[in-house]
Design a protein around this nucleic acid. Structure first.
Length: 827
RNA sequence: GCCGGGAUGGCGGAAUUGGUAGACGCAGGGGACUUAAAAUCCCCAGGCCUCAGGGCCAUGCCGGUUCGACUCCGGCUCCCGGCACCA
């Protein structure tokens, strides 16, 4: 199905017009600001209808708010650094920048075909020094504020990408990009101290009531706060203190062994020089090398080895064996756990396997007066109960015991309250070429020295021909880059060979857009303050725990450095569902999709936009079908024909509402209802129902016979304005036909409903008998409750149901329903 | 396993947040126009029964609250997403 008017020609005309008029150029001094942002675009080929959907949501709001008198910031840019460009370069033997800029060119062309109202003057491209120098500037600032540091750590290594990954980039043990199984390596890398903001980021989540609930839940989980106590156990042989984190101090009397993470530092030394050394070393090496994916799938089956050493329970003085155990992770807590097999399922399984004693110290109340018998237990008892075998705490409810034991430990100086987070510091070093060079110099005399701000940018060398990763940084092999002089002492020194994670680029791009051309600073505080926070942020759910945490962290860190005022970057977030084709998610890199560059020339941008807007509510996924296109094409064709059939009738003078005929009154009310619903639905991010309302109104107009009625003519005018955010090209064309002397339709005020005419004079009230619909009565809106009830009881279809029965009561819900309740009939 | 979301005609989806279930659209059936087809327009359209007035059933399943439940509560089934031994 094709459009019945020259869509392409007319769309091109108005796109050029908007560009020439600067319709979407941002106001330098916003009075009522509205910042609409769609998530950063990674240029990897053509733009498909999945992208289009995302951008259409933003564009509807941008245009609507503009017509409502807001000053809108609606920018676009390119997340242009990253591995796919580098991999493409390796595959095709050209430079990553070639592939990147070709992709950008194609994508920009497609976006312009769609006629999205971006302020292209503020376009940013992260792989240009104009952008990435500010990554470096901010990195140095973070370093100066103690938020960037280097440490040796066991890091996630993707053997395919040949680079490290942040925790957020590992999903289920595989690389987020290439799906290769991630390994562990010990390396010295740069980290950003996001953990310093863990509590604030968590508290902030509670206030983000205009974010989707699932994203908030994911962030809470990801930050993973848990309250507990750090108890000082002692290594029996050396009296060395080993702090152990637990959330269950109430089970402290039930500890029968200690479990140590194989990756932890203590695990390396604990059995050295003893008869257990060989067994411990064998186990340690085997577990550490075990790929993550295997550890994930091998749930349940626990494995460990005895170290020959013992720990002393500071509360009881008990002496318990220390094991290495594969289920303990080094990165959480202290890497050592006190094991209470009676009341922890993992410890239970481990104890059973290695014949370690089990002690019951929490008694289930339901069991009373019988007692928990460790030898016959089939699983750990993990619920609340009464403390037993716990010295002075016997008889205490275990949930109260947590507090009491903690207090006791604190008093004795053998424990302290701590809060633990699952969130880890952000690893930002990457061993790849196509990224922002980390602006640090390693000097044999001065150590790590940041490149002075006035000597930025550290340019990414362009004359590199070999990007093949060799397990170390690509830049390490580029002599002209790596060799430098120390900014501090002037002696020979080496540059940091790593580049930054590209999530750094997208952590502050929302700020750069507010001052995109600044060549003195990343952005001015005054400009950022004008626009932040983002009023509407639209993007994919896949960024829930990566980007959306990083950019919340950056915004706060930058605020603390005095660079801006707002701490929370975005108040309203909407995540959109994927668009699939025959059940397969559209993807540029996999070449699956309906391409904007092909679809728009054939069907038009307005049809494409309507199709993705109308198909389903934004947060849900949708399958692209030809039938969808058929439906919206018919809609625009009928619109076109309506105006074609009524030349010269479009009017903008509000009719004299005192002189309406009955039919006119109905049409006028329907129009106002449509306006009200469209605005309310857009405010609620429900574009599918807004379009449905407009379709209904078009049906009303088509059916309306009195074409010379002033109401009909006025409705034609209002409909053009109403449509403008949804089918901008068509609306602009109709607008100019009706008012050749006027400017853009987007300079006009969006219609407001006439509040006096939002409801019909007559209301149709359903009449139920005992909750079942039996008839409907039509009464004047002004009817009193008594009048409505009287009319309802007189309804013709009610009679058979009332024969021989008595009416117990009549319920009337104003304007909604009448329910006639009968007395219960004696059987 | 834990957390979050969901289940409505042949299909995509509506339903003022407790008040006419199925808006709008697609596909389908019937008709008009046409030599014919396409396009367009009009009518029908959840299922079953029907004395042709209407009746009964129906929002994943079972129960409850209520004058009234797609909506609230309790218990299940299944689907999607997130997390994965976090001490």
């Amino acid at each position: 199905m094709r459009v019945a008017y020259p869509a392409r020609e007319l769309e091109k005309r108005w796109q050029e017009y908007w560009e020439k008029q600067g319709t979407f150029r941002t106001s330098p001094n916003p009075q009522r600001k509205f910042y609409v942002l769609v998530m950063f675009f990674y240029p990897s080929g053509d733009v498909h209808m999945g992208h289009c959907r995302n951008y259409a949501f933003g564009d509807v709001l941008c245009r609507l708010r503009k017509m409502q008198g807001y000053d809108v910031l609606h920018p676009f840019g390119w997340d242009a650094f990253g591995l796919p460009a580098e991999n493409a370069a390796i595959a095709h033997g050209n430079h990553p920048s070639y592939w990147t800029f070709e992709s950008i060119k194609t994508a920009r062309q497609s976006l312009k075909l769609l006629g999205i109202g971006y302020d292209w003057d503020r376009e940013v491209t992260t792989c240009l020094p104009e952008y990435y120098r500010w990554n470096q500037w901010l990195f140095v600032k973070l370093y100066e504020h103690g938020l960037a540091y280097r440490k040796e750590a066991s890091v996630n290594w993707c053997p395919n990408c040949q680079t490290v990954l942040a925790n957020e980039q590992v999903k289920e043990g595989v690389c987020y990009r290439c799906k290769a199984t991630v390994e562990k390596r010990k390396l010295t890398q740069w980290f950003l101290k996001i953990t310093e903001y863990a509590q604030e980021l968590l508290d902030g989540v509670d206030k983000l009531d205009r974010w989707p609930e699932n994203v908030r839940a994911m962030q809470r989980y990801w930050i993973g706060r848990s309250e507990g106590v750090e108890v000082d156990f002692e290594l029996e042989e050396t009296r060395e203190k080993i702090p152990v984190f637990t959330t269950r101090p109430d089970t402290l009397y039930g500890v029968t062994f200690m479990a140590l993470a194989p990756e932890s530092a203590l695990a390396e030394t604990i059995a050295r020089g003893t008869e257990h050394e060989r067994a411990v070393e064998e186990f340690r090496k085997r577990i550490i090398l075990r790929p993550e994916i295997e550890r994930l799938t091998a749930t349940g089956d626990k494995e460990g080895v005895f170290t020959g050493k013992h720990a002393v329970n500071p509360l009881t003085g008990d002496r318990v064996p220390i094991y290495l155990a594969d289920f303990v992770v080094a990165s959480y807590g202290t890497g050592m756990v006190m094991a209470v097999p009676g009341h922890d399922q993992r410890d239970f399984e481990f104890a059973r396997k290695y014949n370690i004693p089990i002690k019951a110290v929490i008694q289930p109340e339901s069991l009373n007066p019988r007692t928990l018998e460790p030898s016959s237990m089939t699983a750990a008892y993990t619920d609340v109960g009464v403390m037993v075998n716990s010295g002075p705490f016997d008889g205490t409810r275990s949930d109260e015991g947590i507090e009491k034991v903690t207090g006791h430990l604190e008093q004795q100086g053998i424990g302290r309250r701590v809060v633990n987070f699952r969130l880890k510091d952000w690893l930002v070093s990457r061993q790849r070429y196509w990224g922002t060079p980390i602006p640090m110099v390693h000097c044999p005399n001065c150590g790590v020295v940041p490149v002075p701000l006035d000597r930025l940018p550290v340019l990414l060398p362009e004359d590199v021909t070999d990007y093949k990763p060799k397990g170390k940084s690509v830049l390490e092999g580029v002599e002209s880059f790596i060799n430098t002089t120390c900014p501090s002492c002037g002696g020979p020194a080496l540059r940091d060979p790593d580049t930054m994670d590209t999530f750094v680029d997208s952590s502050w791009y929302h700020l750069r857009y507010t001052d995109a051309h600044n060549d003195q600073m990343p952005f001015r505080r005054s400009e950022a303050d004008k626009w932040l926070p983002i009023d509407e942020y639209i993007g994919g759910i896949e960024h829930a725990t990566g980007h959306l945490i990083f950019f919340r962290f950056f915004t706060r860190a930058l605020a603390d450095m005095g660079l801006l005022t707002v701490r929370e970057p975005c108040v309203t977030l909407h995540t959109q569902g994927m668009v699939s084709l025959n059940g397969v998610t559209m993807s540029s890199s996999k070449r699956i999709g309906v391409w904007v560059g092909e679809f728009v020339p054939e069907h038009g941008a307005d049809v494409g936009r309507l199709a993705v807007l109308f198909a389903a509510p934004p947060e849900k996924g949708m399958d692209w079908t030809d039938d969808l296109v058929t439906g919206v094409t018919r809609f625009v064709n009928r619109l076109w024909r309506l105006y074609d059939d009524n030349p010269g009738r479009v009017q903008f003078e509000r009719p004299d509402t005192a002189k309406l005929t009955a039919n006119e009154r109905v049409l006028y009310i329907r129009m106002n209802q449509t306006i009200a619903k469209t605005v309310a639905d857009c405010d609620g991010f429900q574009f599918n129902t807004a379009i449905a309302a407009q379709m209904e109104f078009l049906n009303d107009l088509t059916a309306f016979a009195e074409r010379d009625s002033s109401v009909f003519k006025f409705a034609l005018g209002q409909l053009i304005l109403l449509l403008a955010p949804f089918t901008p090209h068509l609306a602009e064309e109709l607008w100019h036909r009706a008012r050749p002397e006027a400017g853009s339709v987007f300079g006009e005020r969006y219609p407001d409903p006439d509040q006096e005419f939002l409801v019909f004079d007559e209301m149709v009230i359903p009449v139920q008998v005992d909750g079942k619909l039996r008839d409907r009565v039509s009464v004047p809106r002004s009817a009193t409750e008594e009048e409505v009830k009287k009319a309802a009881l007189a309804a013709a279809n009610l009679a058979p149901f009332l024969v021989g029965r008595r009416v117990a009561k009549v319920v009337y819900v104003k304007g909604r329903v009448v329910n006639v309740v009968l007395t219960k009939e004696a059987q």
